[in-house]
Amino acid sequence: MSISKNELLQALATTAAGYFSGNPTPPVNAAAVMKMLAKGLLEATENRLEVTEVQPAVPVEKSQGVDYMVCLECGRSMRSLKSHLRTSHKLTPADYRFKWGLPNNYPMMAPEASALRSGISKRVQKKIQTDPTVNKGGWPGRR
């Protein structure tokens, strides 16, 4: 598959911008770096590998339980996926949902864990509303 000159120049500009923003390069060497990047892009377009479809670690239907969620990336089971995705896979929940074709309302937390957190939050909120000794915002000790 060939690539047009315009597409190659656009890819070269994007690649070069990324390279130069992260690597301090003397202006004298900039032309050599650009030639190296252009050569690499040409070779990459000529030797394109066929992209294979990524398969989830477990079927999507089995990724949700009452008290667990299974990561489709690695197959680990946990109560909440959000921090795991960020730390282990460098993905946001939106990126994860998009990658695996999940709906926007796909949960990132097991239903049981979500209900537990919700209950705790409601009890704390009720205590704040009914207890006159609780500081309702502002600085500690001030009314």
Score class of each variant (00 low, 15 high):
Lys39Arg: 11
Thr25Ile: 14
Val33Ile: 15
Lys62Gln: 12
Gln64Leu: 11
Leu81Ser: 02
Ala32Leu: 09
Ala44Val: 03
Leu81Tyr: 08
Cys71Pro: 05
Gly18His: 13
Ser83Pro: 03
Gly65Glu: 06
Asn47Asp: 05
Asp67Met: 01
Leu49Asn: 10
Gln55Trp: 05
Glu50Arg: 15
Ala30Lys: 14
Pro26Cys: 10
Glu53Ser: 14
Ala17Gly: 14
Met34Arg: 08
Leu85Ile: 02
Leu85Arg: 06
Gly75Arg: 10
Ala44His: 09
Met34Trp: 03
Val70Pro: 01
Asp95Pro: 02
Glu61Asp: 07
Gly18Glu: 06
Leu91Gly: 01
Leu49Arg: 15
Ser80Trp: 02
Asn23Phe: 15
His89Asp: 05
Thr45Phe: 15
Met34Ala: 14
Pro59Met: 11
Asn23Leu: 09
Ala17Pro: 04
Val51Trp: 00
Arg86Pro: 02
Leu91Gln: 12
Gly65Tyr: 03
Pro59Cys: 11
Gly18Asn: 13
Arg76Ala: 14
Ala32Arg: 08
Leu37Glu: 02
Lys62Glu: 13
Cys74Leu: 13
Cys74Arg: 10
Val70Gly: 01
Ala38Asn: 03
Leu81Ile: 08
Ser80Gly: 04
Ser21Thr: 05
Leu85Gly: 04
Glu46Arg: 11
Thr87Trp: 09
Cys74Ile: 12
Ser77Thr: 02
Thr45Gly: 05
Arg48Asn: 07
Ser88Asn: 09
Pro24Asn: 06
Ala38His: 02
Ala44Ile: 04
Lys35Tyr: 13
Val33Trp: 04
Ala30Trp: 10
Glu50Thr: 15
Arg48Gln: 11
Ser77Asp: 00
Ala32Met: 08
Cys71Phe: 09
Leu91His: 00
Asn47Ser: 12
Leu85Ala: 12
Ala17Arg: 14
Pro93Ala: 00
Leu81Gln: 06
Gly75Phe: 15
Cys71Arg: 11
Val33Gly: 07
Met69Lys: 08
Ala17Glu: 11
Val70Phe: 02
Pro56Ser: 10
Val33Tyr: 02
Ala44Lys: 11
Thr45Lys: 12
Val66Gln: 10
His89Leu: 08
Gly75His: 06
Gly40Ile: 03
Pro56Leu: 09
Lys35His: 06
Leu42Ser: 13
Ser21Asp: 04
Ala57Cys: 12
Pro24Asp: 03
Ala31Ser: 15
Met69Gly: 11
Leu81Asn: 05
Glu46Phe: 07
Glu61Phe: 12
Tyr68His: 10
Tyr19Pro: 01
Pro24Gln: 04
Glu61Asn: 01
Pro27Asn: 08
